[in-house]
């Protein structure tokens, strides 16, 4: 059963070393040329751009998500479920629909511009759609629940008394946060960041629908190489570099998990 996805992945790896045939097929030969091409500044820029966007989206999710997660974790238990459900519902809504919602909001003749112009704040519509800003909004919107849930889980486990002890020991609010809450919820923070970062890095729909020509991300590059240029080997090489990046992040995550789980290990 595991072979079911393992085989195709292996195939991608193999093909990434082959080269492109004249009519878009695959010419079986071994070369690292495709990986060399990935290092071309043109493509490197796309990788870098994706990394930056994914990173900024992660930080934004963390900043937006932490207060929410903290608030939920300190609610009476019966309200926690309701709030968590509220956070989850948009997540379970079709991703295309959610992305479309932002097209609807952000386009030149969209609601945002109508409201802003109507209220006299601006007189020329903002060109937000088809820009990096729109992509960022889309990413944060799409993956915020991924951040909130692990954060909530970590904060919920943090005993109230520990925070109270910090107060009792004269810590001001910022110190309570930096010296007590944040270190103790670090596993949740790391988990949330990984869970946002990975799909953001490989995002396809968001940059495709909300981004402009210059907001291309790795996901779009892969799709472009496969379906438009039909250079499968190069597309495969790009895929594998992306997967390498993702797995590196994942390893880092697993390591923190491990150190966290060690003391409470059972059996």
């Amino acid at each position: 059963m595991g072979a079911f996805f393992f085989l195709p992945l292996l195939l991608v790896l193999v093909i990434s070393f082959a080269s492109r045939g004249t009519y878009g097929g695959v010419e079986w030969s071994f070369s690292l040329a495709n990986y060399a091409t990935v290092a071309d500044p043109l493509y490197l820029k796309i990788f870098l751009h994706s990394l930056v966007l994914a990173l900024v989206a992660t930080v934004l999710c963390l900043v937006l998500g932490f207060p929410l997660a903290y608030y939920i974790a300190r609610l009476p238990v019966r309200w926690q479920g309701v709030w968590l459900l509220l956070v989850m519902i948009p997540f379970w809504t079709n991703f295309l629909v959610r992305t479309y919602a932002w097209i609807f909001m952000l386009r030149t003749e969209g609601l945002l511009n109508s409201l802003l112009i109507g209220s006299g704040l601006i007189d020329k519509p903002l060109e937000v759609l088809f820009s990096d800003t729109a992509v960022l909004i889309g990413l944060v919107y799409g993956y915020l629940p991924f951040m909130v849930l692990p954060l909530y889980a970590a904060i919920e486990r943090l005993p109230r008394s520990v925070v109270e002890a910090a107060w009792d020991l004269y810590a001001p609010a910022w110190a309570v946060f930096w010296r007590v809450i944040l270190p103790l919820t670090k596993p949740g923070v790391v988990a949330g960041c990984i869970l946002v970062f990975i799909p953001s890095l490989g995002a396809f729909i968001t940059p495709d629908l909300l981004g402009g020509a210059r907001s291309m991300m790795v996901g779009n590059l892969i799709q472009h190489e496969y379906l438009v240029v039909r250079d499968w080997p190069f597309g495969s090489a790009v895929s594998f570099v992306l997967m390498g990046l993702v797995l590196t992040g994942l390893m880092a995550y697993l390591r923190t998990e491990e150190t966290m789980n060690k003391p409470g290990e059972e059996r």
Partner: peptide, 25 residues
């Protein structure tokens, strides 16, 4: 362990990659 890893892989690899590899397959 190996099967376990292979089983979890689709949960963590980017979806684009999942689509591409299946298409190639």
């Amino acid at each position: 362990k190996l099967v376990e890893g292979a089983l979890l892989l689709p949960l963590v690899i980017p979806e684009v990659m999942m689509g591409v590899s299946l298409m190639l397959f």
